[in-house]
Design a protein around this nucleic acid. Structure first.
Lengths: 173, 173
DNA sequence: TAGATTGTTAATCGATTAACAATC
DNA sequence: TAGATTGTTAATCGATTAACAATC
């Protein structure tokens, strides 16, 4: 993993002592403790706003569930998608969002709609009490509420990083 | 951007002097020079392996083209997709990959297929001469060739980061 | 000349690594 | 007791910030 043993020990000790000097780490115990630190010991319920290709791709990712992230619903404005579902997860209309959030626990909202709508929907979600946003729209969301956690996935940043590494790589010859 | 002026000057001077003391930076010139550093001054041709939801979502992203990244084809094994296209970009069969790579320039291959196939296709792409891989499969690709650049997008990492920030945020109260 | 802005060296800060003590 | 492994302090390294010289 390109990390020294020393760094592992330093990092773990930031959170506490999980091993026994002279004896070692209990791998199962350590794994669970790291999970607790990262919040993976509790279930996270996710709704996806935007049931286009990206939203549906996320809904199809089974691996998330193994980590405790359960996608409970998708929302879209396209009436043709109404009543349909992805892997058993219902696609609802955006007009049903308010009602849904009042009657269901929602821990995380994933934003996969066009960026023009991202800011307005984000502030609506915050008003509805959602405190975590997983943002795939190509904008830096403006959310004044400090209690709201935002994690953005900017794919074009990743592509530019790849491009830069191509440049670097070609210069090494 | 949460960066000091001093840091900007240091970082820019790593690559050269782009401004004029006492006068300032020419924004247009600086923008272009940064683009050259990142390799955004040349066109990058991308093929996408896996025409599922994620592959099609990438093909629909218009913004990439503004940065010089042009998606030229998608590949899949599903015969139902044969002959179809996404935003004018043709979906080809994986069996056509060899022929395609021999007759077209390909700068980057984006991998959006299930992880079980990722490693074998990645090594095939390297054999075909592709030197940059944008990996969306949930694996750390094993590519011995040092000349091949790999950029991975691990969505579950991003989700775990979000989860950790939720934990941190809730403790600050 | 005075003010403003970049380039570059020096100082500071934080993270990584090394060393060793504590413990099995 | 000897060997092995974690916890923790100290040393090192690199990145960020501050200071100031150079220039318009």
């Amino acid at each position: 993993m390109k990390v020294t043993a020393s760094q592992i020990r330093q990092d773990l000790n930031n959170f506490g002592g999980f091993g026994q000097q002279g004896y070692g780490y209990n791998v199962q115990f350590l794994y669970e403790e790291i999970g607790k630190i990262m919040g993976l010991n509790t279930e996270h319920r996710i709704i996806i706003i935007g049931a286009g290709n990206l939203g549906q791709a996320l809904a199809n990712y089974v691996k998330f569930e193994k980590l405790g992230f359960v996608i409970t619903a998708l929302f879209d404005v396209n009436p043709e998608l109404s009543g349909k579902s992805v892997r058993g997860i219902p696609i609802l209309m955006l007009s049903e969002l308010d009602e849904y959030c009042r009657t269901h626990r929602v821990d995380i909202a994933a934003l996969t709609m066009p960026k023009s709508k991202a800011d307005s929907i984000a502030s609506k979600l915050v008003d509805l009490g959602i405190r975590a946003i997983w943002n795939f729209a190509h904008v830096d969301l403006e959310i004044p509420n400090k209690d709201v956690v935002v994690e953005s996935v900017h794919l074009s940043d990743s592509l530019m990083q790849l491009s830069y590494n191509i440049v670097k790589n070609s210069k090494n010859k």
